[in-house]
Design a protein around this nucleic acid. Structure first.
Length: 871
RNA sequence: GAGGGUGUAGCUCAGUUGGUUAGAGUACCUGCUUGACAUGCAGGGGGUCGAUGGUUCAAGUCCAUUCAUCCUCACCA
């Protein structure tokens, strides 16, 4: 048995332990048809990313579940991998290139992709190494990447199938366009932010010279692309001008006045300019009225040739100039400040420009329906349940999904065009020839939304579309653990994809966690610079302390604040456990043989074993209900309060006395410690493994041990009740000693008046060790003068420290206790005299209250007796 | 505009299907070099559970109203 250091220093062993696990293939899942599978696929971190607290929380929760299930004997797979994150990665590479003075056009598609793969090699590995630092027990032999061959195959397969089913189509639609990333983005990728802008009121002259209509707009530059103005069909004010034309200022184009219900009569002037090419609502109006789509901007949001003399001006520059010209023309009526929500790109925060372009879409309605049903029926459950509302809301209001991106880093769209005959073919092949004219076809230049491949992650990683054994055994996966911020982006898309291609929901349960915020409750962000690096925390306090911090007091779906004080508390717990183990080990003989529990158990042994047993039951119940924070706090309390503060202290007299009793104590110490280590292992894998290895000196791994199970034979109810009486008495004595300012070094014999003479007599040692007694004497009747009395439910304990006791003070103290006892009795009696309570409350509860009343009355009697004796 | 979260000790948060006189960590106060640990031990003070009303024998927990705060979705040009 190795001697442990006095201080817990995780840096000494965490990496070594992880290495041991890896060398011994401890994380590897080997299919065993006789076992039930438990599968988690990791939410793949971006290859651009550095590990942040969000990952740390996410991975910690997953690792806890996986380690728990693995120890319970499930065939457990945690499948890891990374995401190519098309738009985010491409933006980073472009930025890096910009610093070198190189553009995408300079190096072309192939040159760019070469750089991107280099980037992946360089940084994709970094995040994986960081995940390992946390202790993540992923099966690294199955690691995947969204852009690897298998996942790419799955993407092509899905695209082709959906296309053939008519669920993928290409069309000219208005999309959200990011002029900085130079790509379309989906509705989900648009973030709305409140911005202070203006309402410009502008007069459009009627063509027949009979006057003007006044419109109001927040984006005057788009008037270059107006193809109508609209009023509400029921608006009496404008009834007469419907059908007439107005002259578009600056452009001098005649455009019609149309009637459409989209217009709100009460808002603004009741007249709306219609710009189908640059506003999603206007686009719809345009379709209804057959209006031309006049696109006035290029992909950088610079005014194009349709903008006449404003061609070449950036959108905000054009805005300024157009307003100035309108003012000159006398057509600008007024400018009102107006705050409104503006869509911005979730990656670069640039204001999104609604822009008409040819894009690929997924028709969502048919896919959404089964996905809604799957959650409604409970095939997939959200924890906590309230997130189902978010899911339903999104699914029920779903719009078609724009999946094409004008990027190079990603899965290239498997659509091919014939330049000669305009034929389109969608195919998994890389070279395609026109079925009509035989000419080699040109592949679509665009790539797919990065979430398109993530949507397939739970089965593409298991080998789909191949019929692999992994897929057959591990799908559907068991639990998906992720933050509420990507329910719509990712979770919902996996669900409809899993249902569509596998015919089964991808996971039974979605465990949702919140965000990790800074100490002030702010979101951790780069711009605020308030991020805390998990790796720094690991360096300073250890991965186990970080993990414990993240899971303690954390309940599903709720945000948490991260602060150093919490990590220090976690580290202190690790140190406590470390030293408790150190105590156990340093008191074991060199040749200690672990033969389990001894044949004869002392009362305190039964008490700690019984406690352990009931904690096991509770912890398993909590874990099964995903109450990880509650589970860990119970283990924490068990180890610190019961095992360390009570049982270890109780063991000391026996350990130092030697003999058979010492041997028995050693066995119980080891048995409970081992059990506690196993119980804690999923939460704090490193320290528990390190201690286990030292404690057992064997080649076994705690992570592969069986998780403790509740054992009805280890209840020891009677012993536990008895021993609680002793604990109560010890506490009461300590209490009085503190109040009387008597240090433990001032010993006193205790005289205990009790019905449990045998019990207390047998526990004399504990009173000596834990409450400064030098000997006790227990009997049915004690009478001592000038004495402090500790009163518990089962005893009166006389502490004869006559020289230290002030009779007045002691009387006052007893009077206070008496008040409390009276109050207790009053509360319980009130309950028991309530006929409603007696009638309707469960019988067990009523009996419990009756017992309480008896105890409280008994206590009161004892106190009154002491008062009488003293007075 | 719609939906949702949160509000419990100075601070950070737990509190499971309603059922002891509401808990933990931390901070604070008092005492302790007790042979694992001062990253420790013992003891203590501190909360009308945001407010009001209701259901119930019983409400921190369920319902309604309200205040504060945060978030998500949608959006009127």
């Amino acid at each position: 048995m190795k001697e442990l250091n006095k201080l817990y220093s995780p840096g000494d062993f965490e990496d070594r332990i992880y290495g041991l696990w890896m060398e011994n293939d401890c994380f590897k899942a080997t299919i065993d048809r006789s076992l039930t599978p438990y599968t988690i696929v990791i939410p793949p971190p971006n290859i651009t990313g550095q590990l942040h607290m969000g990952h740390a929380l996410d991975e910690t929760l997953q690792d806890i579940l996986v380690r728990y299930k693995r120890m319970q004997g499930y065939c457990t797979l945690w499948l890891p991998g990374t995401d190519h994150a098309s738009i985010a990665t491409e933006a980073k590479i472009v930025e890096a290139m910009r610093k070198e003075g190189v553009t995408k056009d300079d190096i072309g598609r192939e040159g760019f992709l070469e750089r991107a793969w280099d980037w992946k090699e360089k940084y994709g590995g970094r995040i994986v190494e960081q995940l390992k630092k946390l202790g993540s027990s992923c099966d690294w032999s199955r690691e995947r990447f969204t852009l690897d061959e298998g996942c790419s195959n799955a993407v092509k397969e899905v695209f082709v199938r959906l296309y053939e089913k008519g669920l993928i189509y290409k069309g000219e639609r208005i999309v959200n366009w990011c002029p900085k990333c130079c790509t379309s983005i989906s509705d989900a990728e648009v973030e709305h932010e409140e911005q202070q802008g203006n309402f410009w009121h502008i007069k459009y002259p009627l063509e027949d010279g009979s006057g003007f209509v006044e419109i109001a707009t927040t984006r005057p530059e788009t008037l270059l692309g107006d193809s109508a103005v609209a009023v509400h069909p029921k608006d009496e004010r404008y009834k007469d001008i419907v059908g007439k034309n107005v002259i578009l200022p600056i452009v001098n184009r005649a455009i019609p006045v149309v009637a459409d219900e989209y217009v709100e009569m009460d808002f603004g002037t009741g007249v709306v300019k219609i710009t189908p090419a640059h506003d999603p609502n206007d686009f719809e109006v345009g379709l209804r009225h057959n209006l031309p789509i006049i696109n006035v901007m290029d992909e950088h949001a610079v005014i194009n040739e349709n903008g006449g003399k404003y061609c070449g001006q950036e959108r905000y520059e054009a805005r300024k100039n157009i307003v100035a010209e309108l003012e000159e023309l006398g057509l600008l009526v007024k400018v009102e400040p107006h705050s409104h929500n503006v869509g911005t790109c979730y990656r670069c925060s640039t204001t999104v420009e609604p822009w008409v372009s040819k894009q690929w879409f997924v028709k969502m309605k048919p896919l959404a329906e089964p996905a809604i049903e799957c959650v409604k029926s409970g095939d997939t459950k959200f924890v906590p349940e309230r997130f189902e509302k978010i899911y339903f809301h999104w699914m029920e209001n779903i719009r078609d999904w724009c999946i094409s991106r004008q990027l190079w880093w990603g899965h290239r769209i498997p659509a091919f065009y014939c330049d000669d005959c305009e034929e389109t073919v969608v195919s998994k092949e890389t070279e395609v020839y026109c079925p009509k004219c035989g000419k080699k076809m040109r592949q679509d230049e665009d790539t797919l939304d990065t979430w398109f491949s993530s949507a397939l992650w739970p089965f593409s990683t298991l080998g789909w579309p191949e019929n692999t054994e992994d897929l057959d055994y591990f799908y559907p996966t068991s639990t998906l653990v992720t933050g509420y911020d990507i329910i719509t982006f990712w979770v919902s898309r996996m669900i409809f994809s899993g249902l569509e291609y596998m015919g089964k929901t991808p996971f039974d349960t979605v465990l949702i966690h919140g965000l990790v915020r800074d100490a002030q409750g702010r979101k951790m962000s780069k711009s605020l610079g308030n991020g805390i690096d998990p790796l720094d925390i690991i360096d300073n306090y250890g991965a186990d302390a970080l993990r414990l911090t993240l899971v303690t007091g954390n309940s599903p779906g709720n945000d948490m604040r991260f602060m150093d004080e919490k990590v220090i508390a976690s580290r202190n717990f690790a140190n406590k456990l470390w030293n408790a183990s150190r105590y156990v080990m340093m008191n074991l003989p060199e040749d200690f043989e672990d033969t389990g529990l001894p044949e004869t158990l002392n009362i305190e042994d039964k008490w700690i074993i019984g406690k352990f047993n009931s904690v096991v039951k509770e912890v398993c119940d909590n874990l099964d209900k995903y109450e990880l924070g509650i589970a860990v706090s119970k283990i924490y309390d068990f180890i610190w309060d019961y095992y360390c503060d009570w049982y270890i202290e109780l063991s000391k007299p026996r350990i130092f006395a030697g003999g058979k009793d010492k041997e028995n104590a050693q066995k119980v110490l080891v048995w409970v410690l081992k059990g506690a280590l196993k119980l804690l292992h999923p939460f704090m894998p490193y320290i528990t493994e390190e201690l286990w290895q030292n404690l057992t000196d064997s080649a076994s791994f705690i992570m592969l041990e069986k998780y403790p199970e509740y054992n009805a034979d280890l209840g020891f109810e009677g012993a536990m009740n008895d021993f609680e009486k002793v604990i109560g008495a010890i506490k009461a004595v300590r209490n009085i000693r503190t109040e009387m300012n008597v240090p433990n070094s001032t010993k006193a014999k205790l005289y205990i008046e009790t019905a449990d003479i045998e019990l207390f007599t047998s526990c004399a040692m504990f009173f000596e060790k834990l409450s400064g007694a030098n000997g006790i004497e227990a009997s049915e009747k004690v009478s001592i003068e000038k004495c402090a009395t500790a009163v518990t439910e089962s005893a009166r304990i006389f502490i004869p420290l006559s020289e230290l006791i002030d009779t007045e003070k002691e009387l006052a103290r007893l009077a206070k206790e008496k008040d409390k006892a009276l109050k207790d009795i009053e509360i319980i009696s009130r309950k028991l005299s309530n006929p409603g309570f007696l009638e309707k409350a469960p019988e067990a509860l009523v009996n419990q209250e009756r017992e309480k009343l008896i105890k409280a009355e008994d206590r009161l009697n004892k106190i009154e007796k002491s008062i009488a004796e003293l007075g």
